[in-house]
Design a protein around this nucleic acid. Structure first.
Lengths: 190, 190
DNA sequence: GGTATAATGCAACTGTAGTTACATATTCCC
DNA sequence: GGGAATATGTAACTACAGTTGCATTATACC
């Protein structure tokens, strides 16, 4: 549940407790090892209350991902692909690299919930591609391929950057992304 | 457990039953919804026996993935990247498109086990890249990015091809892959 | 402040994951 | 074919997921 401000105080308290404790747990251990029980114990709520708001832990995770990436969506929503791809790449890394540990864990964890990456990818890119006349002319199959293409490249670079100890600068990440997205391997290696 | 031919007949019977029923189940329903219990019921074995061979269902899935992709690994193991990338792309699609439903489900399912893609990706590409002098000269970070880059593009194309009802020819898939890997977006869209 | 409404808690339930000690059956190999 | 080795089964156990009916509490609104 995403709070709007009009909720019952009990709801606000419960949802904030659920999300806060969930973020803590995500930072402390692998998502796959988090149980509903321990989340409820920590948030001081009954299991029934949790299930009242979320069918499964995966749904809570998806909502958190949705909320976190919303700011990024806003940044790129007016850019046009493929012409403004460099702006999209820049926005991605300036946004992602400024995020905290929760974003990092959610985006990079290689466990069974990396599918979240795909959800994010689809949400983000479909909005920007669809404004391109050249894109509209492509067949649906090629469209669907391109839809995930750019963001995978960026998520991949971001995750490897984290795994490497964040030793490159944001500008270096953007430069690598620009090469791989615009020019392919030949931009990086001969 | 991967059978070598020297095993006790009981072991052969058990392992074949486990893998056979697991493949059937994968074709019938989402992997996430398969339980150890129903696999054991179908394979006519006790839970204890299953856990004797596999710590979790994920491990069984990983082993199946490993076995299925072995033939592909053999095909590309002598190619050198980035020079022979077109050969790798061709091998990928000629192999993947000839596979059956189990491969399709394992590779394309968008659920929580799409991480299998990553495992496959890493296994496949590291062997081919490491023979490239130009690759060795790159920093570790860029290396790790490239390691997943090519195969993601191919897996992505393959999965979209399946989702689209396999309407393109294998040659069209290879052509699209060649453009995206070698030349980036500019090879596909202006 | 009192009350109807909605949120939450409680307790008990079913089903599955994963483990254990021990019993039994199958296979291997002589 | 017989006996040792080992694979598999049985049954019972703990723990958690997810659900249910009913009790209780907090909140909103008059």
């Amino acid at each position: 549940m995403i709070l709007t401000g009009n909720e019952d105080l009990r709801v606000v308290k419960t949802i904030e407790a659920i999300k806060g404790c969930f973020e803590d747990l995500i930072c402390e251990k692998d998502y796959e090892k988090i149980t509903v029980k321990e989340l409820c114990d920590r948030a001081r709520i009954n299991k029934k209350t949790f299930y009242h708001y979320y069918p499964t832990l995966d749904d809570l995770l998806a909502e958190l991902q949705f909320e976190i990436s919303s700011a990024y969506i806003d940044m790129i929503k007016d850019y046009k692909l493929p012409d403004e791809i460099r702006k999209v790449n820049r926005a991605f890394f300036e946004f992602s690299c400024a995020q905290g540990k929760v974003f990092e864990k959610i985006t990079c964890s290689s466990g069974s919930y990396s599918y979240i990456r795909q959800k994010m990818i689809n949400r983000v890119t479909s909005e920007t591609w669809k404004k391109s006349p050249a894109f509209i002319k492509l067949d649906r199959f090629t469209q669907s391929v391109l839809l995930e293409h750019v963001n995978f490249i960026n998520v991949n670079i971001y995750c490897k950057w984290v795994a490497d100890g964040k030793r490159s600068t944001v500008e270096e990440l953007i430069a690598l992304s620009d090469k791989l997205t615009c020019d392919g391997l030949h931009g990086v290696i001969k």
